[in-house]
Design a protein around this nucleic acid. Structure first.
Lengths: 114, 114
DNA sequence: CTTATAATTCGATATTACTGGAAATATGGA
DNA sequence: TCCATATTTCCAGTAATATCGAATTATAAG
């Protein structure tokens, strides 16, 4: 997992920076590796299909989710590697060493992630 | 440092989800506790004063920075507690335990932060 | 081949964000 | 008081996002 450049960090952040999209992503995180079909997400969040589709494509553009067709459904899954990279970027660029994590844990995370 | 609700997480995320604002925040993180006056930020990022002010107020609204008047200048500082809380929120809600950090580090972070 | 289901794309509309010059506000000093 | 400096607020124009019904595409099954 590489550390993101500023541009991809911005698109990852803006993918999550919207109430419906954050809710969608959290659902997918909970769902784990089995993911959820679009219709099930729409149902759970009570969103019209076309609105959901708009947000899913935004999340996909930001690299935060992946999709895979399975029969008539399309299964969406959270991209944990991307989330990982985003966390690493924030830790590295927005936390200044002194804050957010004690130094030792920060070092350990860097090794884990990069 | 409390764990954020979804609404404040969205405003923190959207505060950072813009190229100029992310750049501003990173500068302030680097500057640390001494912070930077608005004019210096405008100079470093080559932004018109009014545009900078727009972004600063957005960052402030999202709770990511603080300001303090000092003579004719207004000094801006990154709010590390807010960044901390955002990291904790993401870890808790968008990382699903299995991912982003090995379990032991995640536990340690939760204790550190909450 | 037709019908039903799952999802996306299109299109029209409404809302919100971004930009930057000009005017207003606040402070400090001559 | 008057002027210069630092910054914000105002305003108008432009661009990007969000919403959701209707039309379209893709798949599966009878």
């Amino acid at each position: 997992m590489e550390i993101k450049d500023t541009l991809s960090a911005v698109s990852a952040l803006s993918a999550l920076a919207q109430d419906h999209r954050l809710a969608i992503f959290r659902l997918l995180v909970q769902a784990g590796s089995s993911g959820l079909p679009a219709g099930r997400i729409a149902e759970m969040l009570d969103l019209p299909a076309s609105s959901l589709s708009f947000h899913l494509s935004h999340l996909k553009n930001g690299g935060m989710i992946r999709d895979e067709r399975e029969g008539r459904s399309i299964i969406y899954r959270a991209d944990f590697d991307a989330m990982n990279a985003l966390m690493a970027f924030l830790l590295e660029n927005c936390c200044a060493g002194e804050a957010c994590l004690p130094g030792s844990q920060q070092e350990a995370l860097k090794e884990t992630i990069s």
